[in-house]
Design a protein around this nucleic acid. Structure first.
Ligand code: FES
Ligand code: FES
Lengths: 151, 151
DNA sequence: TTAATAACGGATAAATTTGTCCATTAATAT
DNA sequence: ATATTAATGGACAAATTTATCCGTTATTAA
């Protein structure tokens, strides 16, 4: 009782990142992908994945087309402009950037919590990492089979 | 719909750290503190805080004494041996250290997810920070009124 | 030994997150 | 036009986390 959790991003966000990487890779091969294929490829519950893809679509991170021959895709040209930060923002908001590590309403330099300095250091590194890591940069190794979206 | 979250630690863990810092500081002044005082001092719901303190007590992070004159405290001698990692472990487990950033069952060097390298870097820094920051080291500035456990 | 104090523990409730179901809408092909 | 395909959106359900309530237990003091 009273235990567990402790993941950096929400489940939705995790799925969102995984889906984006898969769709990006397939888009580089000029393939549109359907909901079912995405869900299977990233090992996520299909109905929930539908919501995830809608959210990505609403945030213009992926394109979606209805009907036969439709599916999800990303613009090859703009692929290098989608960063992990874009996706994290769409799902988890900016709490992870602005939030206080000890749960005070807002992180506040003027009235910092006791772990502010230490926490800010980590948080800023995370922020930089997310803002400099493009989805595209992650697809190469995935395509080579060096990294995995499910196990 | 389908939004929000994004905090590093669970609420329980946040309360746990805040409570520990408060109790540590008061223990340095040789004061035992009661549930009500703790809850007010860290601005947390009192009944839930009760559970939090029980959890800390069960994990030997704080002492608790029943009855009149009782309350919660920490051993002044051992105060420098309690690290943030101790508390995080008690509430959120080791997921935050061992977990995969994209939610794969386990982080696995041999079959890494696409963000493994980047994520591991951050995660290890967080781990080091938590393992080297003692609760005691945080009390000094709090006592001086330079840091805050509520606002 | 009794009354008062204060933490403990179990049951339960509220809120949030995760997940499902299904009818609707849009697009394509016949 | 019609049937088929595939995403969309709304309502709902399960699971988890956060939070409350209240009787019990242990401790102290009178
Ligand atoms: S105030 Fe807590 S992290 Fe900045
Ligand atoms: S496998 Fe994903 S973080 Fe290591």
């Amino acid at each position: 009782m009273l235990q567990k959790q402790g993941q950096m991003f929400s489940k939705a966000c995790e799925y969102g990142i995984r889906a984006s990487i898969y769709i990006a890779e397939q888009s580089q091969l000029d393939r549109k992908v359907g909901l079912k294929e995405v869900a299977e490829s990233i090992d996520s519950p299909i109905a929930y994945t539908s919501k995830i893809l809608q959210q990505l679509s609403r945030n213009k991170i992926i394109n979606s087309e209805k009907g036969p021959g439709g599916g999800f895709s990303m613009d090859k040209q703009e692929l290098d402009k989608v960063y992990l930060s874009t996706i994290v923002l769409a799902f988890d908001g900016e709490e992870i950037y602005k939030g206080c590590g000890l749960g005070l309403k807002q992180c506040n330099e003027k009235m910092p919590c006791p772990v502010h300095d230490q926490f800010k250091l980590i948080r800023d590194k995370l922020k930089t990492m997310l803002e400099t890591t493009s989805v595209q940069s992650l697809t190469a190794d995935f395509e080579k089979g060096l990294t995995f979206l499910k196990r």
